[in-house]
Design a protein around this nucleic acid. Structure first.
Lengths: 127, 127
DNA sequence: ATTGACGTTGACGTAAACGTCAAGTTATTG
DNA sequence: CAATAACTTGACGTTTACGTCAACGTCAAT
């Protein structure tokens, strides 16, 4: 079965990051593509890793935290305590996001008030 | 009516930031406390501003964005287009947060799978 | 054989958000 | 009055996450 692989710029295009970024992630131990001579060859697994990195960033993880999660996950497959640790970290992150969401609801509520005040101020003239 | 004021370290303690941080926010045009000689005197309004700054940070705004929102808000009180812009920016942020939440739900879903796999692997022995 | 696209490794630069002195000022208190 | 605490400005340091060259390798196509 012919394993599909990717070049660095293919991945860069697909995920809208620069090649520099991808190499940087490798530098940080987040990716370990194979080589064909000098050239980097990315497997499906590498591609998934990149997806996970970017998702991690979107939920506010630092690259170091992502790295630690990868390491934990790799080591955790057969180790329950580490898996629990893994889950605990993510639960904590979930709670942080929940707080963020609460914050933004507050902000949006305030905005609503401001808006209605403004519309009242502008009055019946030319809204 | 005696306006209650605050020293820099009072605010620092209350919000668990350093005085350096508060001065830095002033440097960035986010706060403009009065002075008694050299000393900074923070009013209730300044305190509210600081709360807003920290809340803004929690929802992922940069200090620059917060600054722009303050400026917009100050200028917007009587100007509808700017108010709409103000609201638009926050709506965009709300959407980003929503995406973050979706991301984390995905992650947590995956975690659930991994956990159950792990428990299955550990089997009936000593879970 | 040369051009062009793509890739490579350094090395240095940058922006954000503070931390960390240093060196001086002001206020209070024993 | 001297010590101490709290405050000030200013300058330089730090971390994260890349951007930006420079200088070179490689491979396919003309």
């Amino acid at each position: 079965m012919a394993e599909h692989t990717f070049s660095i710029s293919e991945l860069a295009r697909e995920f809208d990051v620069t090649t520099r970024t991808i190499r940087f992630y490798e530098d940080q131990g987040l990716l370990e593509p194979q080589r064909a001579g000098q050239r980097r060859i990315y497997s499906r697994r590498d591609r998934v890793r990149l997806m996970l990195i970017l998702r991690g960033k979107r939920i506010g993880l630092s690259l170091l935290e992502i790295r630690e999660l990868f390491d934990l996950y790799d080591a955790a497959s057969n180790d329950e305590p580490q898996l629990r640790e893994f889950i605990r970290i993510l639960s904590r992150k979930e709670q942080q996001l929940q707080e963020q969401l609460d914050d933004i609801r507050v902000v949006l509520g305030e905005i609503g008030q401001i808006r209605s005040q403004c519309e009242k101020a502008l009055g019946k003239q030319a809204v």
